[in-house]
Design a protein around this nucleic acid. Structure first.
Lengths: 216, 216
DNA sequence: TAAAAAACAAACCAATAGGTAGGTTTTATA
DNA sequence: TATAAAACCTACCTATTGGTTTGTTTTTTA
């Protein structure tokens, strides 16, 4: 096996196992010994690839968390169409259809934020986690603007607060899902999420087709 | 000083400092040595009051987290009136007016859930944290039912999903606030929260006073 | 094919972790 | 006021922590 491939393979196996364990049990709860044992490597290998534990988790954030948010929550909404349906489909996919084990582990993004965002030690990690959040927010804002342009959404909505509210509620429900075994909380969430999203729809006074009028 | 008071005082100082540090840095990141040093006690005192670290954090959950949720988010909504205004006032109090340091530390409840709810080791802690969440949810459901009875809210709303949605979004925004220094995210949240709560208002067809009719 | 660099393994290290044992001081009881 | 119990301190223990050093194997290069 060529050198470059071998290096990338071992490095990736460490990152994958580290991500899995740290997301499940937490950064301070997982030792390097634990990780290398489960992967079948030694300290020598680990510290050849990573300077220290801090740089290790930094790599996990960049190479797994950031990419997961992109592939799971940013790319799927980078398209045209009714934002209400696009978001609803996304939630159905990620919260209902997905049968993966990860469902009961909450949101990796929130998990890492809670454990790794206390200054001044983790200031750089905090910056990177915030950057991921910001990219997600921008993607949502763009989705909303397209929705306005294409006539699906009310043109008077404040896109940034709306985008933030979507992220807040979604990260919240994924985190609190850890307390419940059943998926009822996800179904309930989607139900209310749709109620909220309906407040963004284009109003009847705006679309110029139908008009409502108060009658006695 | 009487024996009983002395005991309770020491015990409380340990719990208070433990709560402060663990909420800030995390359960596994804070050692017992760190806690006893900051309160000026020794191992002997600590292990006289608590069997081990696990029972210690269990006491913190019961005697600080549970009580804080009660006094800050349950008791304030245990009253009559328009749920929309009651909730809005509460959020203003806790998110905007409150100048305490705790603002940048996220939600203690979520912090403890993320760090202490992975089975099978912490199963009992998970139960207790879920119990706190359930009590909060029940209080919200009761608030909503009163709102229906008193004519403020639509009688067709699903109270449990609504209560869950409120908790989800609130815990979410408090957690993600850790990434931002300014309070804009709180202002934006309250703005959108009100939009959502408006969907719960009594509909015009129900109140029997005003009626809207489609006209050409 | 030999040297050099890369990719690991093995053994080790100081510091810290949670926890224990036994003694000392403080308070309550008789 | 003597005794007992409660409240706390000191010193210590073992296991584990993140990290280092040195040696060995593998791959590349000249």
């Amino acid at each position: 096996m060529t050198q470059e491939i071998k290096r990338k393979l071992t490095r990736q196996s460490l990152i994958d196992k580290g991500y899995e364990l740290i997301n499940m049990y937490g950064y301070h709860a997982i030792s390097i010994d634990r990780i290398i044992n489960e992967v079948g490597l030694t300290k020598g290998a680990f510290y050849y690839h990573f300077e220290n534990k801090h740089h290790f988790v930094e790599a996990i954030i960049q190479e797994r968390i950031a990419k997961e948010i992109h592939s799971e929550f940013i790319e799927p909404i980078n398209k045209h169409g009714n934002p209400l349906f696009i978001m609803e489909d996304l939630l159905q996919d990620k919260l209902i259809k997905d049968k993966s084990l990860a469902q009961s582990l909450g949101s990796p993004l929130t998990n890492f934020i809670v454990e790794l965002s206390h200054e001044p030690n983790d200031y750089d990690l905090q910056i990177q986690l915030k950057e991921i959040l910001d990219q997600w927010k921008v993607a949502l804002i763009n989705l909303l603007y397209r929705g306005i342009d294409e006539g699906y959404l009310n043109r008077h909505i404040n896109t940034e607060p709306v985008a933030e509210f979507i992220i807040n509620s979604l990260e919240g429900v994924r985190t609190l899902k850890r307390m419940a075994n059943d998926k009822t909380i996800f179904y309930n969430y989607i139900e209310q999420f749709k109620n909220y999203m309906d407040t963004l729809k284009i109003s009847q006074e705006d679309n110029g087709i139908k008009r409502y009028q108060l009658v006695s």
